[in-house]
Design a protein around this nucleic acid. Structure first.
Length: 313
DNA sequence: AATTCGATCAACCGCTTAACT
DNA sequence: AAGTTAAGCGGTTGATCGAAT
């Protein structure tokens, strides 16, 4: 037995909103507010719409100061960085972008940014394949991608792909997990020997390359950064780590806009947190606008479990 | 000019969470 | 403490439009 419907689907109107409906909803909310009850709202106005539909229409379209389209390079960078860090938590990501809605950010990511990033990756992989055709071993990335296609959830796979993409940029030899330039938290995470994640620590062995990557460490460190920021236990990073984050953002920009375009980008990262950039380390308890670094361990564990199930860790 | 295809985005669906009784 | 209800959220769908053939 399913959940009871929130409204009478037989009498409720569905589909695109007419300008008249928009005006009715907008006028009413501007005059009376929502009244804290979206379900009752359409009845008060005389709209044959579901309360959830009204709420969505208001939040995503009618609300004042909504911006549509024309995402700036700064916004691109923020979206990508946050997506890699926290995944598809669109409401949190959108909260960092004034005037943007979660739906907008989600659509923008799915239709443009993701393709831009992963597309570039594909191009480069193809290029790598060509240049490495003479060698018998494939790159670790390709192995992982092939395996990932088997079972890894799309979201987790995307995140791992993007993480690895950045790693490759920083360290083409593949030892990125030890390179704090990519993930400032990695080295720190490794020192937190008594944190709960260590009980699950595993290693992905890339035998052909004689290298190993601890994806657990990698993924967990990402959220350890957040957890540390939230509980104040580790405080702010060193200036060196701050510059590492900036370095990561710079790599994102390169992926998004390509070489040669970075200098022309307004507010380009060139050595400091500038206006329009995310002040990554300001999300402490008091200032965090939406608790954006409150990683749920189960969420990231799920990603990790996805990963371990694929690679038989 | 007609058709096909892919991209975009508004809107819906259903699950989770939080507030309330 | 348990049950109920609505809000919030992310995934998905489907209509629309423009480009390509």
């Amino acid at each position: 037995m399913g959940r009871a419907p929130c409204c009478d689907k037989a009498t409720v109107k569905k589909g695109p909103w007419s300008p008249e409906e928009d005006v009715m909803l907008k006028n009413y909310i501007e005059e009376h507010g929502t009244g804290g009850n979206w379900i009752a709202l359409p009845h008060k106005i005389g709209l044959k719409r579901c309360g959830k539909s009204c709420r969505l229409r208001w939040l995503n379209y009618l609300r004042p100061n909504i911006k549509h389209g024309d995402f700036t390079p700064e916004e691109d960078s923020i979206i990508c960085s946050l997506y890699i860090s926290i995944g598809s938590r669109w409401s949190i990501i959108a909260a960092q972008l004034p005037g943007r809605t979660d739906n907008d950010v989600k659509n923008y990511w799915n239709t443009k940014l993701k393709k831009r990033l992963l597309g570039r990756r594909k191009d480069r992989d193809a290029h790598h394949r060509q240049s490495a055709a003479a060698t018998t071993s494939e790159t670790s990335t390709e192995n992982m991608n092939d395996a990932g296609e088997r079972a890894l959830s799309a979201s987790a796979m995307e995140r791992i792909q993007l993480c690895m993409q950045l790693q490759e940029l920083q360290n083409p030899l593949g030892a990125a997990h030890h390179n704090p330039l990519v993930w400032p938290g990695c080295s720190r995470a490794a020192t937190l020997s008594n944190n709960s994640f260590n009980s699950n620590r595993s290693t992905v062995t890339l035998a052909e390359q004689g290298q190993s990557i601890s994806m657990n460490e990698h993924l967990m460190s990402t959220q350890l950064e957040g957890g540390a920021a939230m509980d104040g236990g580790l405080g702010s990073p060193s200036s060196a780590e701050n510059s590492n984050v900036i370095s990561m953002e710079a790599e994102l920009e390169e992926l998004l806009y390509g070489e040669g375009n970075r200098s022309g980008k307004a507010g380009a990262v060139d050595g400091g947190v500038q206006q329009g950039d995310v002040d990554w380390w300001s999300y402490d308890q008091g200032k965090s606008p939406v608790g954006c670094w409150d990683f749920a361990p189960e969420a990231t564990n799920a990603v990790f479990q996805d990963y371990t199930s694929v690679y038989d860790i």
